[in-house]
């Protein structure tokens, strides 16, 4: 497969919380249509990488390019309308908004009423449980339902690139399977490019085409997902063998 230009590219991005460096000189490329996973241990800087892409955290140095434009330094709220969307760690549902209002918030910048209605129905189709709970406050949902709602909310913005932070965290295996099926569907049917941050390296790599390994804020390895899965060092460090 020849890949023309990457939809997302990080060039030597360094980010810090105050004086404490969280990631240093991270470079990575994501091509249109891919599922790329970023794996690594707790505190390796995975979430920091995503927050730096989304503009919540301004990189100290380096460049972030998305869809042909440089986006580091842009305010976070300008990006969803360009098709860059994140489902952050811990899902961050608006707890005192109803399920339906949470979905509406996902489409905040959109003005096409019909399209929004269509997308909402699509989300309800994907996750029928949300339709049942549409008048309930987001904070009253179970963890799995919240994850579904968070993904549904992200889909409401019709993303081109979706960043998912730990979608399997704290969920029952059955629900995790369902979530990952949906991720695959979004990728294959809608053509959404996905960046997947996971501690569950096995699961993440199995559903991605390529993978990056982060260790204490640095990219230490990048390869095809299959190759990483087969790599003995990775197997020892992240797959528990």
């Amino acid at each position: 497969m020849t890949k023309a230009t990457p939809i997302l590219e990080l060039k030597n991005v360094t980010s810090a919380y105050g004086r404490i460096k969280a990631i240093s000189e991270v470079s990575l490329k994501v091509y249109p249509g891919e599922v790329v996973s970023i794996i690594g241990a707790n505190g390796a800087g995975k979430s920091t990488t995503l927050m730096s892409i989304c503009g919540v955290l301004k990189p100290v140095s380096g460049e972030v390019w998305y869809d042909g434009a440089r986006i580091d330094g842009l305010a976070a709220d300008l990006l969803p309308s360009r098709g860059l969307c994140q489902v952050p760690e811990g899902r961050r549902i608006f707890p005192r908004l109803t399920v339906e209002e949470n979905l509406d918030m996902g489409a905040f910048f959109r003005t096409d009423k019909d399209g929004m209605e269509h997308d909402k129905n699509r989300v309800f189709q994907m996750f029928p449980i949300l339709l049942e709970r549409r008048k309930q406050h987001g904070g009253t949902l179970s963890g799995g339902e919240q994850q579904m709602l968070a993904m549904g909310r992200a889909l409401m913005s019709r993303p081109k690139l979706l960043l998912l932070d730990e979608p399997s965290l704290g969920l029952a295996p059955l629900i995790v399977q369902q979530i990952f099926r949906i991720i695959q569907e979004i990728n294959e049917v809608d053509g959404v490019t996905v960046v997947l941050v996971e501690q569950n390296a096995n699961l993440a790599l199995k559903s991605s085409s390529r993978g990056y390994v982060l260790e204490t804020g640095n990219v230490v390895m990048e390869d095809d997902a299959q190759a990483l899965l087969a790599n003995p060092a990775i197997r020892a460090a992240y797959l528990g063998e």
Binding site: V56, D77, P80, Q86, F108, R153
Partner: peptide
Amino acid sequence: QDKTMSALVG
């Protein structure tokens, strides 16, 4: 309810 998340939805 959540300033960071509301920025993430635009």
